[in-house]
Design a protein around this nucleic acid. Sequence first.
DNA 1: GTCAATGCAAAATATTTGCATTCGT
DNA 2: ACGAATGCAAATATTTTGCATTGAC
Lengths: 142, 142
Amino acid sequence: MNLREFLKKQGLNFTKQREIIFSTLYNNPNHLTAEDLYLVIKKQHPELNIGIATVYRTLAMLEENGLISFIQCSNGKKFEISKSHHDHLICTACGKIVEFHNNEIEKLQEKIAKENSFKLTNHIMQLYGLCEECQKKEKEKL
Amino acid sequence: MNLREFLKKQGLNFTKQREIIFSTLYNNPNHLTAEDLYLVIKKQHPELNIGIATVYRTLAMLEENGLISFIQCSNGKKFEISKSHHDHLICTACGKIVEFHNNEIEKLQEKIAKENSFKLTNHIMQLYGLCEECQKKEKEKL
DNA sequence: GTCAATGCAAAATATTTGCATTCGT
DNA sequence: ACGAATGCAAATATTTTGCATTGAC
């Protein structure tokens, strides 16, 4: 997805700030909060003198348009570039996030929605637990 | 679950505030935020003169001990009494929440965790969409 | 009486908004 | 040039914390 073209199509201006917010998310394998992004960009592009409000506004705009998505964590929303739909396994000890996709579950979700006369637009599924390493660390503690 | 006995077992004091926070959640069919609870209790038990900090502290304590659970909504955590595990269908138009449980999905979640060497402790799954009434309203608008 | 729990107010966090200025087209 | 987008600072909203006081046991 070309950001410049996308913005043009929406009648929005292409700006250095929007470009960098998008590319920073694009090039970062992690899920980032608005604050994270703000700090990273401030460090990597000090000449830009970016404002936190711009980060929030841009993230909201990109999210509304489906270019990025987020998971709601205890410390706020964490954003990522929208790829094909996937859900998350989250380690409660080290915070590691693993993405996965499962068609069977998606079908069952649709079935449940149908049974309740809901028309689904979206969903979140987050599985919390301990990753392999943190399970080992747990054992060592004992 | 008897709150008084539970607190005793944990070495915690039984207080009027804790009793009322718990019973208010218990008797309310809705999912309530800390703020919601604070306002309801203030109205229904003005003599108690409850503080918002007590509500937050009590909810955190009850949640840590598994007596209540919450779903993370855009406007904060919404609490409910812990019943047998279930997930949520949420109408994005009117905010209606429908609870459901599906064993097949739970099994698939365990399978996914196993494939990724995670040991699951918990999960959240929220399906967003339009409930029957709001779908009708949508149509009427056009 | 002792220590846990509370209310209050202040602090910390997270996010949004108003507005003058800058920038993209 | 014009309106959209920005940075800044102030405003909001949400949750947490310090502390003196109250209340449970």
